[in-house]
């Protein structure tokens, strides 16, 4: 059974910094957990409270109420030795070299699996892994954005954390960099490192994540263990039929006793039907072929399609 590596209970934060501005409720009674060895996506529109939540996990912001438990116990400064953090933008000292940054990081973390005499070797291995070994003496200010992202990755992982927070790790990467980053994240997943992935990219969530939390207005509004279409009660497949209308489709369903659709939209002799499961769609394909109807499209819907996300992001806003 998988245990929660990190648990957030009733976390609340109100920004009250400016005397002349209204108080702003950023995180509102947030409760969620991040399972050990799993990759969890934390999603939400801008201002949903993701970054504030992450900053509270790292102790950068003090919560007004609630608690954060690490392996069942209240989080302490020393627990942060087991954490890794890759922020959204490259937040690195500009006038230090790649090698110096990693050396400083190791001196601060003092990982148990490494003796100080082994730091040099660990830095070499890490810089070779992210293809920055040739640039080890280059100052951060001289690195490209992609190189900076990779160095941020190295900084977040060199001490072998048990839990790592990746805030938009793919942002600003070219296709090669993107591919490398996916490989690196998959490597961490294989090592059973708990990952919290903040991203808006649906593709990376579906490929990399085992669990998804969607936040809105400082709360988790949707949570799922596996973001696959089959586990949801929502439409999983969509079919587009050409040369027909709503009446003839209803007639076809009656005459062939076909399973009912979840949603139907008809326009200009094109009908779009959505089904709960794949087998319903297959029965409709057979019936359409028998009746000479032209199927122009039949596709699987993602559990986290853009439409759905917009709905999750928007639901609470209008509430």
């Amino acid at each position: 059974m998988t245990h929660a590596m990190l648990e957030i209970k009733n976390l609340k934060k109100v920004y009250d910094r400016d005397l002349f501005k209204k108080k702003q409720l950023v995180v509102n009674d947030l409760s969620c957990s991040f399972l050990e060895g799993q990759c969890t996506a934390l999603m939400g529109h801008n201002g949903a409270g993701k970054t504030t939540t992450i900053r509270m996990i790292f102790g950068l912001i003090t919560p007004d109420s609630g608690e954060i438990l690490f392996q069942g116990k209240p989080l302490t400064i020393d627990d942060k030795r087991c954490f890794g953090y890759m922020p959204e933008t490259n937040k690195l000292p500009t006038n230090l070299t790649c090698e110096e940054i990693l050396k400083h990081h190791l001196r601060v973390f003092r990982p148990k699996h490494l003796k100080p005499s082994e730091y040099k070797q660990a830095i070499e291995e890490k810089l070779k892994e992210i293809e920055l070994w040739e640039h080890r003496h280059k100052r951060v200010g001289k690195l490209s954005k992609g190189m900076g992202r990779r160095l941020s990755w190295a900084q977040a992982t060199i001490h072998k954390p048990n839990l790592i927070v990746l805030d938009e790790p793919m942002s600003g990467l070219d296709p090669l960099g993107y591919k490398l980053m996916v490989q690196l994240i998959n490597k961490l997943r294989a090592e059973k490192v708990t990952i919290i992935l903040c991203t808006h990219e649906l593709w990376s969530i579906e490929q990399l994540c085992d669990q998804v939390h969607i936040m809105n207005h400082g709360q988790v509004v949707y949570s799922t263990l596996k973001p696959s279409a089959s586990e949801t009660k929502e439409a999983s497949h969509i079919m587009t039929i050409s040369g027909s209308n709503a009446e003839s489709i209803q007639e076809l369903a009656r005459s062939h006793s076909l399973p009912l659709w979840l949603d139907m939209q008809s326009q200009n002799h094109r009908v779009e039907l959505s089904f709960e499961c794949y087998s319903d769609g297959v029965k409709w394909i057979q019936a359409c072929i028998q009746n000479g109807l032209l199927i122009v499209d039949f596709q699987k819907l993602s559990a986290l399609s853009e439409d759905r996300l917009i709905r999750y992001f928007g639901e609470e806003k209008t509430a």
């Binding site: 900053r55 790292f58 102790g59 950068l60 400064i77 020393d78 627990d79 942060k80 030795r81 954490f83 953090y85 922020p87 933008t89 490259n90 937040k91 690195l92 000292p93 500009t94 990081h105 601060v108 973390f109 900084q155």
Partner: peptide, 17 residues
Amino acid sequence: DSKQEGSLEVQLASPIG
């Protein structure tokens, strides 16, 4: 500078009081 470049955030996210 640490605040502006963000290295403060990364450093304080590590086990430093």
